[in-house]
């Protein structure tokens, strides 16, 4: 009796098959030779499957990857330029595989405005974020785009000391709350 069979027999004394499936995932135990054959057979099937993937399936996978990496970025507290609004929008346009002109027409903004946003010459507005949500069929909610933008703003506010000093000099009669 192989190892997985022993495990299964032991579990079966206490649990039904349905209960086993709800609490365990364990692999069939094979001899080294059998395992090698199974791995080789599977490798061929997997590589064939990758070749058969449609552009739509590849797009779904790539957009899911972009979304999950964005979510993981939101869990951190740092600013990463790769996750600026502009860079993520650029990445999104690249993944969907259309040119900027077509994309700007699809989301109803002027190509020059889109170019200025992508090159960080202009800040995105909330209207654009709603349009990106609609364009992505809800996969990238407007608030995801807002979070990207807000993270950069926060970083700039914290690090632009020159601007801070410049603006501070324009304030008269500040409150003095220190004891």
């Amino acid at each position: 009796m192989n190892n997985s069979e022993k495990i299964y027999k032991k579990l079966s004394k206490t649990y039904t098959d349905e209960e086993i499936v709800e609490s365990f995932f364990f692999n069939e135990t094979l001899s080294e030779e059998e395992q090698k054959a199974v791995n080789e057979e599977f490798r061929k099937l997997r590589l064939a499957r990758l070749k058969q993937m449609t552009p739509q399936q590849i797009l779904l996978g790539n957009l899911m990857q972009m979304k999950i990496l964005m979510q993981d970025y939101f869990k951190t507290s740092k600013y990463d330029p790769a996750f600026s609004f502009a860079n993520q929008l650029k990445h999104y346009i690249k993944l969907i595989g259309i040119n900027s002109k077509t994309f700007s027409a699809d989301i109803g903004i002027h190509p020059t405005k889109l170019s200025r946003i992508i090159h960080e010459k202009e800040s995105p507005n909330i209207e654009l974020m709603y349009r990106l949500e609609k364009h992505s069929d809800g996969e990238f909610p407007a608030f995801y785009w807002w979070r990207l933008h807000a993270r950069k703003l926060e970083y700039l506010i914290k690090t632009d000391l020159e601007k801070k000093l410049q603006e501070s000099s324009k304030v008269s009669n500040p409150l003095n709350l220190s004891a």
Partner: peptide
């Protein structure tokens, strides 16, 4: 998905449990 594998996750269960994993 995060690693660019299109969400592909494999498993080699006992034959007897295959249908249950598929259904669940």
């Amino acid at each position: 998905f995060a690693r660019g594998y299109f969400g592909f996750l494999s498993l080699h269960p006992k034959t007897k449990l295959i249908e249950l994993y598929q259904n669940k």
